[in-house]
Nucleic acid binder design. Structure first.
Length: 189
DNA sequence: CGGCTTTGACCAGCGC
DNA sequence: GCGCTGGTCAAAGCCG
């Protein structure tokens, strides 16, 4: 199931969302995927607040990684899609419209967190992509969203995704040079 | 009536 | 080996 398949269409929609005033991307975590190297979790913070610790509910990478150990704990990707991406977003809304249709299938209170974790599956037939949503335990104004898997279809609402255009964005994020606040100039509407 | 959410139960992996 | 915890299932209820 490898190949030049859509790595994560949500990235595109998400990037558009963080351009909106009510959304503010804080952390971008590549937890698993078709990457070279042996890292299991990679943390990208877009702000100098990162170096200031968690004064703003913003955990340093070390802490973020530790928190992500929950996500990686099972170490198995039942959906077999091999791609997991986590975002931490400052948002009032718990469920963000990323262009896909999600069906809630579970809710679980997590240890060490006052906020429950919600589990969603993509509503599209045959699509095994899952999504976990929970509020940050340190600062409930932040929402942790974890996508697992790759959509085998396009967004039912709008399709902005273009793999060739997406590549440089991912590279920019990986190198810390991507500014989520910047206009989505790579879109050609 | 169909689709979605809710919620408790069950299952499986991991750490001790 | 056992207990804990996270993830999933499935039945029931709700809503459009």
């Amino acid at each position: 199931m490898n190949g030049p398949q859509d790595p994560n269409p949500n990235n595109t929609r998400f990037e558009e969302m963080v351009d909106l005033p009510e959304f503010q991307l804080s952390d971008y975590l590549l937890l698993e995927g078709d990457f070279e190297g042996d890292f299991s979790a990679k943390t990208m913070a877009n702000s100098e607040e990162n170096s200031a610790g968690s004064s703003n509910g913003f955990a340093p990478p070390e802490a973020s990684e530790r928190r992500n150990s929950n996500i990686c704990k099972r170490g198995k990707n039942k959906s077999g899609t091999g791609m997991r991406v986590a975002f931490r977003t400052k948002s009032e809304l718990e469920v963000m419209d990323d262009g896909f249709k999600w069906r809630k299938y579970g809710k679980k209170s997590v240890k060490n967190s006052p906020n429950p974790r919600n589990y969603y599956k993509c509503s599209s037939r045959g699509c095994l992509v899952k999504k976990r949503v929970e509020r940050d335990r340190d600062d409930s104004s932040y929402v942790m969203t974890t996508y697992e898997g790759v959509h085998n279809h396009e967004s039912p609402s709008l399709v902005y995704y273009n793999y060739k255009q997406m590549g440089p964005v991912v590279d920019a994020v990986a190198s810390g040079g991507w500014d989520p606040q910047a206009p989505p100039s790579h879109y050609s509407s």
